[in-house]
Computed example of a mutant assay.
Amino acid sequence: MIELTVDAAGLARSRFAVSPLHEVVATLMPWGLQATPDTDPWVARARRVLRRARLPLLSELALDGPGYVPDFLNPYPSGPSPTVEEELEQVRCTPPERVLGELEALRDGRPRSGLAGSELPAGVRRAMARGGAHVARQAADEMRRYWELAFAPHWEAAKATLDAEVGRCAGVLAGYGAARLFNSLHPQIEWVEGTLRVESRFRIAQPVPLVVVVPSLVAPRPAVAVDPTRDEDRPPMLIYPVRDKAIACTIAPAAPSAEMAQLLGPTRAGLLAALIQPASTAQLAARHFLSPATVSYHLGVLHRAGLVARARSGRSVLYRRTPEGARLARSR
């Protein structure tokens, strides 16, 4: 159980933030290993990217590591709606000693909080040997690539959903007060007489100056990120899953059905399913780990069949599904 005690002044300073990088990091957590497309529309695709792209540090921490990612990958949101570039720069500029300290804590454990130690993967150890600054730069570079491949095409719709959740919470706060607001977030979050309680396998009980609340479309259950250095400039962050994911389920492209794959071929079916939003040949090639020439060939076939249309946008040619293509993609 995590218990955060917040006084009246701290409650008044507590705020919400919509964080793109927190959605990225949520797919690196242990729950992503058991997630399916039915539980979250992003996680399955993100895991495929993690396994297939050249992201050695992130993939080792998430897939081969101790089941926990270091806190410096979850930067403190500087405002209510930071950009992914701002957050990546925070990761890149993490003090080297903090980077190494958190990785050593993953190795050695934190007995007081219930985090058991575990041997770090070889690639992580090699990166650590080059220094904390090197690890921070490599992590930021890999997270940028991960973001571009698995998240960027869908962030606009995702952010709209998260902003709507913040609006809902603002209405609860205005109409019923802070206690009702916190108790409305999730069944595993409870506000009782000045203490915010979050069900967790970790054991933390401490007073905090305020709480930053971060809604998520990826996290399946609440989590609390507490700065291990107890830096008062970085209060804890409460990440919780949004209650209504009906909109979120339209964010990521669905996998093509077996029938559509048999009709069009798996590559063309995958490209057609991915064209929820207009995209260029280069964008589709990066997302599907194909050469631009291969994507161009298959898009040409779909275009001649009347399933996609194309139009120039600046120097790029963007492809989109036609009504016929959209109907075929939906007939799953």
Rank of each mutant, 00 (worst) to 15 (best):
L275A: 00
P153E: 07
A309R: 14
D141S: 09
W147Y: 11
R130P: 11
T161A: 11
L106Y: 10
V18P: 03
H298L: 01
S81R: 15
R137I: 10
N74V: 04
A9C: 10
L28R: 03
R98V: 15
V69F: 06
P121K: 05
A17V: 12
E190R: 06
R243T: 09
P75E: 04
E193M: 00
V295C: 03
L238T: 13
I247A: 09
G101K: 04
R230A: 15
S257C: 15
G79T: 12
F202H: 05
R203Q: 03
E87R: 04
V218K: 04
L149N: 09
V18D: 00
W42C: 11
T83V: 07
A53L: 06
H298P: 00
A116T: 11
E199C: 03
G114A: 10
A133E: 15
W147K: 07
H134W: 11
G177E: 08
G265M: 14
N183Y: 04
L73C: 06
A157Q: 09
V242C: 06
A282W: 07
I189Q: 01
L238V: 12
P278F: 04
A44Q: 07
P220N: 09
A9R: 15
P253C: 11
R310L: 13
R145V: 11
L103V: 12
L181K: 02
P82I: 14
G67W: 01
Y146P: 09
H186Y: 01
L284A: 09
T27M: 05
P80D: 14
R203P: 00
L58T: 10
L284E: 07
L162V: 06
E165T: 12
H288F: 14
A246K: 12
N74E: 01
C93M: 14
S216H: 10
L263P: 02
R48K: 01
R287E: 13
L302D: 01
P70W: 06
Y146W: 14
E190G: 00
Q90I: 05
S331L: 15
S280W: 03
A205N: 00
A105P: 02
V135T: 10
G114F: 08
G117N: 09
R203I: 03
R332W: 12
G177N: 08
P215N: 13
G171W: 09
A116M: 04
P121S: 04
R312Y: 06
R47S: 10
M260H: 12
Y240I: 13
V18G: 00
A127E: 13
C249N: 10
I189P: 00
V24M: 00
T39Y: 05
I251F: 14
P220H: 11
T94N: 02
P323W: 09
F72A: 07
P77K: 00
T229G: 03
F289S: 07
R92L: 13
R168M: 11
V24A: 02
